[in-house]
Nucleic acid binder design. Structure first.
Lengths: 296, 296
DNA sequence: AATTTGTTTTTTATATAAAAAGAGCAGCCA
DNA sequence: TGGCTGCTCTTTTTATATAAAAAACAAATT
């Protein structure tokens, strides 16, 4: 069954609140408490019911009041909290790019579940997700095999990305001058300049800016199948570069300047100039990624 | 609990093998049977035990022999012979293109589970899969919304398909003449002619031929991200056209001839001719699909 | 009218049971 | 020697039942 860590945590938080209040004080309404604790009203009601059972509060109709101060022994053993799927994804990516996993390896779901401290179902969901990203493969016997962050994978990923982004660039330069994308682009351009001016402090936030920039360009040709490509790009940049901090400053600085040239190209209205700037940037990105995978 | 569909399928396959052999003939060894059926020895042993229970074979020490020919009634019901995920997928697609579902509709997982006679987890897996195909969307509150087989969807799907296939065509015509893909193409060309000669009878099997042809062309540029596109194309053709039999004969006949022109184009080695033939075919396919969605 | 409370429905995560796979080993036979 | 059998036992995958949490709905109160 599902663990009730959230309930326990919320119960303890409620005790903390009561410890700071006076006996006889009325409690806030259920929706107010739900908002204060950041949980659903269902859970608030469960907490209130438990508090009443332990005679810490009394509930009379819709009027709730504190009947005594909470004691040390009232507290429940605590647990921590993070969206489960995110936690599994994070640990899995760390495992995938770490030394315990080599391409072609068969994945032991049970073992991963034990390592990560979650159920096998959570692992299963995660594996399903990454199989759509092309990082894993299902074998005939139902087992999973890692394909890993190989040179081939990066090559195919960037091939696809170029194909899509070249097309978007061609469409983008041809947009009417009153299209809202142009003003979005200008805003992003200014953000780039602001970023460069404050580069030393903000350098770490670059991946977000990069993601938003490419997303804007690609939005010139709306297509829901891009989601997969963008998703995997985003995941890889997010996780892979966490383990490759070397040359990060140079890498980001160069990419920023390439983005600005790219934006110039788009604004020029000249399809060839725009395409060349795009190609130059994607080429750098590809080389950077390949170099960081294959330092040899 | 886990279904034993694999066991049932294997049991029926074993019956097929026995039906083709003679009474009194010795059976192959367990590992040999496991290899032949593509299953583990554990399952082979379960099948052998069941066959012995039904007196179809006799097991005497290490010597197994057939004691009688299998009868029609020996076969296990094919109701739950299909892998669960496939069954759910089939029913879900039928529901999605059926009258009970309109685009923008919120999906009730619990209700679908009841309708299909499976657990909510199976539904969850299926929804997850189709969300990667772009037919569904996750809402902020964790619910699912159908996007449906709309005109927009088809447009985006075919845009992406053209992008990929044009690139594959350019690569294909430039392949060296001794590349194995050329002989694969010739084999497929002959299959097309055979198909045309026996069109009235085989007409229904066209979607398989179509799928194999496009897969061959696309294989000129190996890229694992194609999997999604090909997957959704395949799913849509498979399910959607089940409900749109109107004009099927004309549609398939025309597509066959376009394929042949397309193959000619590839074989000519002229990139423009090949591309034109490809474009013509994809254009027809797009119109056909749009017409069948939007008969108005 | 806006908010609070009581109730029901739906989604999410895990524990669990069964199926299938796989490993190990002694004995047998060509 | 090398492969097969006949066991048994462990591991892994898969599907479901079920509890927890969230959300939606409906009635009641201020």
């Amino acid at each position: 069954m599902k663990t009730n860590a959230l309930f326990k945590r919320s119960y303890n938080q409620a005790l903390d609140m009561l410890a700071g209040a006076q006996v006889g004080a009325p409690l806030p309404s259920e929706p107010a408490m739900a908002a204060a604790l950041g949980i659903s009203r269902t859970t608030v009601r469960a907490v209130l019911a438990a508090l009443a059972t332990h005679k810490i509060i009394t509930i009379d109709g819709r009027f709730k009041q504190q009947s005594r101060l909470p004691k040390r022994s009232d507290y429940l053993a605590d647990a921590d909290l993070e969206p489960l799927a995110d936690m599994v994804e994070r640990k899995f990516m760390a495992w995938l790019v770490g030394p315990d996993c080599s391409p072609g390896h068969t994945i032991n779901g049970l073992d991963l579940a034990r390592q990560f401290g979650v159920s096998t179902s959570a692992i299963r969901d995660c594996l399903n997700k990454f199989s759509h990203f092309g990082l894993l493969e299902r074998q005939s016997n139902g087992r999973w095999r890692t394909l890993g962050l190989t040179v081939d994978f990066v090559a195919e990923l960037f091939d696809m990305r170029e194909l899509i982004e070249f097309r978007a660039v061609a469409r983008f330069v041809a947009l009417p001058k009153d299209d809202p994308l142009w003003s979005d682009l200008s805003i992003l351009e200014e953000e780039h300049h602001a970023f460069l001016a404050d580069f030393d402090r903000r350098n770490r936030e670059f991946s977000d800016l990069d993601h938003r920039f490419h997303k804007l360009v690609d939005s010139a040709v709306p297509n829901r199948f891009l989601g997969n490509i963008q998703g995997v790009m985003s995941v890889i940049f997010h996780y892979h570069y966490q383990w490759n901090k070397k040359d990060e400053v140079d890498r980001n600085h160069r990419a920023l300047n390439e983005h600005l040239a790219y934006i110039d190209g788009l604004k020029s209205g000249n399809p060839h100039k725009a395409r060349d700037a795009c190609q130059a940037h994607l080429h750098t990105a590809r080389s950077t990624m390949l170099a960081s995978i294959n330092p040899g």
